[in-house]
Design a binder for these strands. Structure first.
Lengths: 260, 260
DNA sequence: ACCTGAACACCGTTCAAGT
DNA sequence: ACCTGAACACCGTTCAAGT
């Protein structure tokens, strides 16, 4: 019965609760502390891509050996989870600047801040997308945006759902537009030509929308989808507030949902 | 000047246009054709996870050696791109069943079909999220949904933007909820306890919404965000159709957007 | 001509030997 | 006690030797 000895998956809530203390209470002056290792790893990822981030490269950059790195974390996965958390720390939005704005604008500012941060680290985006970030910075962001919506009169259920819906949209957008492998402008041009070369009888919609599909700027596209969500949220809070009052959602239906 | 000899990135439009022919025109009866290799690779990914998919394991399962595999594709990345396309082929929605539905329902059916397919292959979701799928199945899906919206009177710009917004949402949702590393029910319970243990003075919103944040079923959450998007789309098409008439979007602003 | 065993240059991780 | 060179068991990929 050694089942209780299984290591928690890095990034999972269980992992964070065992790891967070180690991080914040790091004592003494180790030769290379975790913060420096994580910073260097992120810099390498930005420069050469996540595929090329090797513990050997990282150790060499830090002037040590790979075995030395393992004294600061237990696996490469752990390190990458810390890098993801490090990236989220760059999302610099303070509750103060948000609370003076109308809620639509505040949400847009927060969403744009996350998007901009992800765009600065395109090679690292897959790290953020792999799981819901429940580390300190993820929790802090959730708290701020949640508090903002609650403060503007949104019900608790509506707030919880709004947060996740917006988060999914931003992450989904970033990974498909900024992560390496996304179509480059050159690819876009080639894709447009390909669309135009299709048979209009077989692909009427694609050929009709060929230019639109391949020329809309990421910025404009991002804003459009975000506005859809905000329009929907506004409508939900205005026209059907009763649907989202606490307690009105039949819990037993949700829990026993067979497709969940 | 051998710059023209650089290989296109697997999955990019350039790659697809050079690869598609090879796939469809596969001649003779090679010992193990590409289709069988891709099927077996997907089965292995489903069973043991994408980390454990090794070309050696794959070759052994197929009864051959790794060098033999390289006669069918040029790199492991190429194989994974083909696996992603293979997965998209499972999204079985026909234009016929969609066109008899109101557009809201039709979009919901299509979105749910994609979500269900991704859910059947949780370990493979990162493959789909890494890039906008522009292979044959991605194009076909785009054509169907685009044709549907155009047929219901949506303008071309609105259709193009709606498609990508919905796609981003579904992908973003799937990767954060179904891919390995997403919080398990056990993790959810632990996360809820963690939320409740926070200081309500420091984290008022998180503690207030602790139960909601950790108990909403994925199905209900998915539907909520999708409804937000559909509400927004309905509003956009009804109240402000002029904003989305072809030609009304200032192209030069989009092209020169500094943040794009 | 087509196939593939065996090798190559790596990788993440471990541990016994150093200080 | 703390650190780390060197090894271990892999990995994706290549190529010369087989048929």
């Amino acid at each position: 019965m050694a089942a209780s000895e299984v290591q928690p998956v890095p990034g999972s809530p269980a992992w964070w609760s065992s790891r967070a203390l180690t991080l914040t209470h790091q004592r003494g002056r180790p030769q290379t502390d975790v913060g420096t290792i994580v910073d260097t790893a992120l810099k390498l990822i930005d420069d050469v891509g996540i595929q090329a981030l090797t513990l050997r490269t990282l150790a060499e950059t830090l002037g040590s050996g790979t075995a030395t790195l393992y004294r600061r974390f237990d696996s490469k996965d752990e390190l990458l989870t810390l890098v993801a958390e490090r990236i989220l720390s760059e999302v610099r939005v303070t509750p103060e600047e948000l609370e003076s704005l109308p809620w639509r604008e505040a949400v847009a500012v927060a969403a744009n801040a996350l998007r901009d941060t992800l765009r600065r680290h395109p090679h690292a985006i897959p790290l953020l997308a792999a799981q819901v970030p429940v580390g300190p910075n993820g929790l802090r962001a959730r708290e701020w945006l949640g508090g903002l919506l609650l403060g503007h009169g949104f019900s608790v259920p509506l707030t919880a759902r709004a947060f996740t819906a917006i988060g999914h949209y931003v992450i989904g957008f970033a990974i498909q537009h900024y992560s390496p492998g996304s179509p480059s402008p050159e690819d876009q041009r080639q894709l447009r030509d390909h669309y135009h070369s299709l048979d209009p009888a077989a692909y009427p919609a694609t050929t009709a929308a060929a230019d639109e599909l391949t020329s809309v700027s990421p910025h404009e596209e991002f804003r459009f989808g975000l506005d859809l969500l905000l329009d929907g949220l506004e409508q939900a809070s205005r026209e059907r507030p009763d649907r989202f009052k606490p307690g009105r959602i039949p819990r037993h239906c949700i829990e026993s949902d067979p497709s969940a």
